[in-house]
């Protein structure tokens, strides 16, 4: 087995896994607080990627301001969606919220297609220059482009930032408290609505960051890109143990690893790269069978 090939695939897997993880984080946070599978999340990821186009091509901003702008705008979009579409249904059955989320997702992707046309988008060439920057590394035949470093490092930074917010701040404590007992928290004088909005702001902001990084790493953007990736990230979040942000991170990375390594090494065993999806999902299902609550999930006691 070629060692440099292995390391090359390892880097690729880390990159893809980080992207899945960024999206899975949003799923997991929203689920933790609202017990809602936010099926519109993947499409907010798409909107984030498109906002990157606005920042870079219309406003001519460099990478970091574009990223921040897109995260803020997408975060506001997420909060608006929650206020308009999910909040009125907080007393209704859980599934009608899920269906509304499905509707919002379809609306976002098809509205985007209808309002902006079907031309494929991409970021300008000087947005993140792939070579000639000091960060590009290569060890022998393993090349680590600065894009890959950027994706992995930024995902790690965002994850650590989020983890700090959730674990170390009062807001984070309130979020954890709501996911623990959503009836007791308002009694303690914490505004449930504010916390939920904050959750959406953070979750969708991360999705937007994921969208822009995705656009940098795999440079073709179209309005339907969010759906497939979103569903996959959701599965990753569940495998990690939905509601737990470490789990989302691990689940996303795991999915990335499985996919990349099936493609890279599958052909040695006569498995073509098109088997990627079935094998990835099959393995994830096996994990779920062994640990029904996911890798980091804790079985909740059911009160009788």
């Amino acid at each position: 087995m070629d060692l440099s090939f292995f390391f090359q695939q390892l880097i690729n897997a880390l990159q893809l896994g980080s992207l899945y993880a960024l999206i899975a984080l949003g799923y997991s946070m929203v689920y933790g607080v609202l017990l809602l599978i936010n099926f519109a999340h993947g499409d907010i990821f798409m909107v984030g990627a498109f906002l990157g186009v606005t920042g870079s091509m219309v406003l001519d901003l460099p990478f970091v301001p574009t990223l921040i702008l897109a995260m803020i705008l997408a975060g506001l979009l997420g909060v608006t969606i929650e206020r308009v579409a999910y909040k009125p249904l907080r007393q209704a059955s859980r599934l009608s919220v899920v269906i509304t989320a499905l509707g919002v997702g379809l609306l976002l992707e098809n509205g985007m297609l209808a309002l902006t046309g079907a031309n494929p988008r991409r970021y300008p060439d000087d947005f993140v220059v792939t070579d000639s920057t000091p960060f590009g590394l290569s060890f022998g035949s393993v090349s680590v482009t600065n894009v890959k470093i950027l994706v992995i490092a930024l995902a790690l930074v965002l994850f650590l930032g989020l983890y700090t917010i959730v674990q170390r701040t009062k807001w984070g404590m309130a979020m954890r408290a709501i996911s623990y007992d959503k009836f007791a928290v308002p009694l303690m004088g914490v505004s449930q609505n504010q916390i939920i909005s904050l959750t959406f702001l953070l979750g969708t902001g991360l999705a937007a960051a994921g969208g822009i990084l995705w656009g940098v790493a795999f440079p073709v953007l179209n309005p339907y890109m969010g759906m497939r990736i979103g569903w996959k990230a959701f599965i990753a979040a569940v495998v990690g143990g939905i509601g737990d942000i470490r789990g989302a991170m691990v689940g996303g990375l795991l999915l990335g690893f499985i996919e990349i390594f099936v493609v890279a090494y599958g052909k040695d065993f006569g498995v073509s790269s098109t088997w990627r999806d079935p094998i990835a999902f099959g393995l994830l299902l096996i994990i779920l069978v062994v640990r029904p609550t996911g890798l980091f999930g804790v079985a909740r006691r059911q009160k009788v």
Binding site: L115, T116, G117, P120, R122
Partner: peptide
């Protein structure tokens, strides 16, 4: 498609 296309140019 022309309404938002200028803000998300190809």
């Amino acid at each position: 498609s022309g309404i938002l296309a200028p803000f998300f140019p190809a």
